[in-house]
């Protein structure tokens, strides 16, 4: 990680997203004063009316790339940033809106908008790492305040942020929770999902739905087999991956044709490389 100046210039910008991850920054209420003291927030539309076109020492980018103008804008922002941090599932994986990648964008648009011709959107929703180099990814939908706090502290201290690449199971067991797969037959994506959430869902007796996306070396196929042994039909088991991080590999490969959408909308099939993946199966 490059060396940062004493009071780094920070920008927070968004592409296609719900703003929830930016709001997590504002949720660090007790630290807000320390944050503005330690960082020079030059651009953060959710929080301040001051605007800057850079350069940024640290730029937080929320949201997926869904429209043509975002591609250009992202390239410009990258050029003006020393450190680019992707925050949230939209920025790191495409987000929930990437589910439209399993259909034809025209079909969706016609369902939603009276005059779809006014729309200027890309065929495919993608994470920002498909377009520019990303220095740090903070996962989750939304991101975790603890991980954000750790990232800020690590940037200031000059160390690698502790955003562990481990299964949700580790957080689950450290909390002393009982495994919902083994004790209740729940469909839980925890074993293939990255930690960071604090194992919220298992703490309420339900399975993880993967909002922090895949961890390293995830064995999706074996977990799908377990869901099938618990009685889920094969497509049903695979459809569990069609959520917030659906477009992240290898969740993406696991998802059946149609992306888990209603069958009549799935007629268009799986686009691009997933078609090849489907053929491999």
């Amino acid at each position: 990680m490059p060396g940062l100046p004493l009071r780094p210039r920070v920008g927070v910008v968004k592409l296609t997203s719900c703003d929830g991850c930016q709001l997590t920054i504002l949720d660090l209420e007790e630290e807000l004063l320390s944050i503005v003291e330690a960082f020079d927030i030059v651009d953060f539309p959710e929080a301040t009316s001051s605007r800057s076109s850079g350069p940024y020492d640290i730029l937080f980018v929320e949201g997926s790339v869904s429209a043509p103008d975002q591609v250009e804008r992202l390239a410009e922002l990258r050029a003006r940033s020393t450190l680019l941090v992707a925050i949230g599932a939209c920025a790191t994986a495409g987000g929930i809106q990437a589910l439209r990648n399993w259909g034809e964008v025209g079909d969706w648009a016609a369902t939603v908008y009276p005059d779809p011709s006014l729309l200027q959107v890309l065929d495919r929703v993608t994470p920002i790492s498909d377009h520019v180099k990303v220095d740090v990814e903070v996962r989750g939908c939304p991101i975790s305040p603890d991980q954000l706090r750790e990232l800020l502290a690590a940037l200031l201290a000059g160390r690698r942020p502790q955003l562990p690449d481990e299964a949700v199971c580790l957080e689950c067991k450290r909390r002393g929770l009982t495994c919902v797969v083994v004790a209740a037959g729940a469909t839980c994506l925890g074993p293939v999902t990255r930690s960071g959430c604090g194992a919220i869902c298992p703490s309420f007796g339900r399975g993880c739905y993967g909002c922090f996306g895949p961890r390293e070396q995830p064995n999706v196929a074996s977990l799908v087999s377990r869901f099938e042994l618990d009685g889920l039909a094969p497509d049903e088991a695979r459809r569990r991956f069609a959520g917030i991080n659906a477009w992240a590999e290898p969740y993406r490969d696991a998802i059946p044709r149609g992306g888990g959408a209603r069958p009549e909308l799935a007629a268009a099939g799986v686009p691009g490389e997933t078609e090849a993946a489907d053929a491999r199966r």
Partner: peptide, 26 residues
């Protein structure tokens, strides 16, 4: 699955990692 459940329920496994928790003023 490589999920680590076996090691975490194991009553003898002792592997740990030490991490630093620091304030924003460091």
């Amino acid at each position: 699955l490589g999920c680590a459940n076996c090691t975490l329920v194991c009553p003898t496994c002792f592997c740990t990692s030490v991490t630093q928790r620091s304030d924003l003023d460091s």
